[in-house]
Design a protein around this nucleic acid. Structure first.
Length: 609
RNA sequence: GGUCCUGUAGAACAGUCUGGAGUGUUCGCCGCCCUGUCAAGGCGGAGGUCGCGGGUUCAAAUCCCGUCAGGACCGCCA
């Protein structure tokens, strides 16, 4: 053992002990006659000190060390002199006189600062990720992540869930997102795909009698990235036989509580997690992942404007549309410029227009359109939106869907709390909910239907009869868990009835040959005794992002990628030689070759590196 | 595929709107001084292809066009 103690553990009780502490030189404070070297590791900082007359050898050696050198310091722990103890440091009562210091490794000046006050450009942080990882923020996040994973594993094991690994070189099933492809050397011309999720395999595990499966699984989707989307990401995936939605809700809620507790945020989830139907979520918040923290729900005002003389509203209502409104508490002091900006924003979002009203001190409504509205209508608006003086009211007349979508987005623009910090830390806390009863299908934009979730999602038991008459109206047994407007995970009851599954494929317009080719192995397995089963998958990076109060999942991933899917640390993705390609039966097109050459030229000439 | 923001010394920025010598601030780095600091302090110093290319101009970090990189968002993400 090179060290006897970590840098964060020495206390007054250790005085007199001969110790060796190891770590990085956090700071050197040279007073000429007395020299302090703070040694840091992931547990904290210990002050070591040398006087030229008391520790002549240690002083001489310590004078040479610089920031971020890796050192081992040996000495006998002593109390700091009266009046020089540092109550802000856990180790601040003691210090280690430098009897000897061994330089384990020197360090050049760092390309990025490690102090927590400077917000370094993210490309530099990623390029120098090993250094960035030394900082407390990522140390804290990654350790939280490990604790949360362990706690959730324990919680699921306690419920009888069994961790099973599934393959990551799989058959491409061209549904949903684009697959990442891995060419095969042994079968040139054929490719594996990296799984977008373990979906099919976990269903096969149910056929295999595993009964309750879970896995913290890596998934890959070749789509454009966002703050909460990486090309490779992690899911807590689970599936259970003989289970209903209520069972899944209970397991996931238990896992979430375990996760919050492990992150030091127990008690922040409400006793009862609210549930909203998908339909209500779309009406009330214009979103299937509402952030319940951002102001009140949207209110339908069709009743207020029945028979209105205001032509713009009347025309919309006559055409089968509606008028909806949202109240922004205290928004009445927005400048005219801001208000005009809101109208522009609404139009950009697809609204024909936007009506704003400011609630005056006497509760009257000040608005450009007020003169077109009756007193009863104005009073009705104020009552329906629970308006108070100083509020801003926003009204949109459109189809129900568009009106809610536009007001829902403005609601987020204007009133969504930033971040996910606990209430006691001054944040807006967390507000989870279940969104249930998603539609089974959505319009594919070409006159057909496409699964909203995936083609193995069970129709709602009350809507099966609609499959033949009105499939677009069929609800599913699919459900999402949402926290703070972030889709935290989704799941469903799966189809285990061969006839229903066949009908699904039929409605989706999939030929039998195509079905057999893509999913034959699953359907075959289902022919030999498949239990009813249901499952769920939690976006693990997103959950950790919220638990760690981060704005991007990159802050809870050790080695994340940029928005273009690149890793600035290793330079991935990178070209490979023609011989390597030939090995797997591939050849670069002239176009690809030109791009690769341009890239190489850019790297050499552009000082961006 | 699209919209928007950003790019100036090792780092964080100001300077760009309204063109006039690479001007400046903080941190870091190097040297000297300093015996109780803990974001130590004082003095001095080094360090720049203003992302890259082109254009306008007597003159471009600054204006225009293109491009690259990073970020936010829309599309996309069963």
């Amino acid at each position: 053992m090179i060290r006897t103690h970590t840098c964060g553990e020495l206390r007054a009780g250790d005085v007199g002990s001969e110790v060796v502490v190891c770590g990085w030189v956090d700071s050197v404070r040279d007073h000429g006659g007395v020299l302090f070297v703070d040694v840091r590791d992931h547990t904290g900082v210990t002050q070591t000190v040398a006087h030229p007359d008391e520790q002549p050898e240690g002083f001489a050696a310590a004078e040479a060390v610089r920031g971020e050198w890796v050192v081992a310091v040996r000495g006998r722990v002593r109390m700091r002199p009266e009046g020089t103890q540092n109550p802000d440091l856990p180790t601040g009562a003691v210090e280690v006189p430098i009897d000897a210091v061994e330089v384990l490794s020197v360090a050049e000046p760092l390309p990025i600062p490690l102090d927590e006050r400077t917000e370094t450009d993210e490309i530099l942080r990623l390029r120098h990720r090993p250094l960035d990882l030394r900082k407390e923020r990522l140390q804290r996040n990654l350790r939280t992540r490990a604790r949360v994973s362990a706690a959730v594993r324990a919680a699921l094991e306690a419920e009888g869930f069994v961790e099973v690994e599934t393959p990551t070189l799989i058959r491409s099933t061209p549904e949903g997102a684009r697959d990442y492809l891995v060419p095969s050397r042994q079968t040139p011309g054929s490719v594996y795909a990296l799984p977008q999720s373990p979906q099919l395999f976990k269903q096969l595990l149910m056929v295999g009698g595993i009964d309750r499966y879970y896995q913290i699984a890596r998934c890959w989707r070749d789509e454009d990235l966002r703050a909460d989307r990486q090309p490779e990401f992690t899911q807590l995936d689970l599936e259970a036989s003989f289970a209903e939605p209520e069972d899944v809700y209970a397991w996931i809620e238990a896992a979430m509580r375990a996760a919050f507790e492990a992150a030091g945020r127990s008690g922040e989830l409400p006793e009862t997690i609210p549930r909203l139907t998908w339909h209500d979520a779309m009406d009330l918040y214009g979103s299937d992942k509402p952030d319940l923290r951002a102001g009140p729900p949207i209110v339908d005002l069709a009743g207020v404007f029945a028979g209105t003389a205001f032509k713009a509203f009347a025309a919309t209502l006559d055409a089968g549309g509606t008028v909806r409104g949202w109240r922004f508490r205290g928004g009445g002091d927005l400048t005219r410029n801001r208000l005009d900006g809101l109208i522009e924003r609404a139009q950009h979002l697809g609204a024909k227009g936007l009506v704003w009203m400011v609630v005056e001190a006497d509760a009257s409504l000040r608005a450009p359109v007020a003169k077109f509205l009756s007193d009863a209508e104005l009073a009705g608006i104020g009552a329906a939106l629970d308006a108070e003086p100083g509020d801003l009211l926003l009204l949109a007349a459109d189809t129900a869907q568009t009106a809610s979508a536009v007001l829902g987005q403005l609601r987020l623009d204007l009133d969504r709390p930033a971040g996910h910090a606990p209430v006691e830390a001054g944040g807006a806390g967390v507000s989870p909910l279940w969104v249930v009863d998603f539609p089974l299908f959505e319009d594919d934009g070409a006159g057909g239907l496409t699964p909203l979730h995936h083609p193995f999602t069970s129709p709602h038991r009350d809507d099966v009869h609609l499959l033949d008459t009105d499939p677009a109206a069929v609800r599913s047994h699919a459900y999402d868990f949402v926290i703070n407007g972030v889709e935290m995970g989704s799941g469903s009851v799966r189809i285990h009835d061969a006839a229903v599954q066949a009908r699904m494929f039929e409605i989706l317009g999939m030929e039998e040959a195509e079905v057999r080719s893509r999913f034959g192995f699953l359907l075959d397995a289902f022919r030999h005794g498949v239990p009813p089963h249901a499952g769920f998958a939690v976006g693990w990076d997103r959950l950790l992002m919220i638990l760690c109060d981060e704005r991007s999942i990159r802050e809870v991933i050790a080695f994340p990628k940029t928005q273009t899917g690149a890793d600035p640390l290793t330079g991935a993705p990178a070209a490979v030689g023609d011989d390597v390609l030939a090995d797997v039966g591939l050849q670069m097109t002239p176009e690809a070759r030109a791009v690769a050459a341009a890239e190489a030229g850019t790297e050499a000439g552009d000082s961006g590196a």
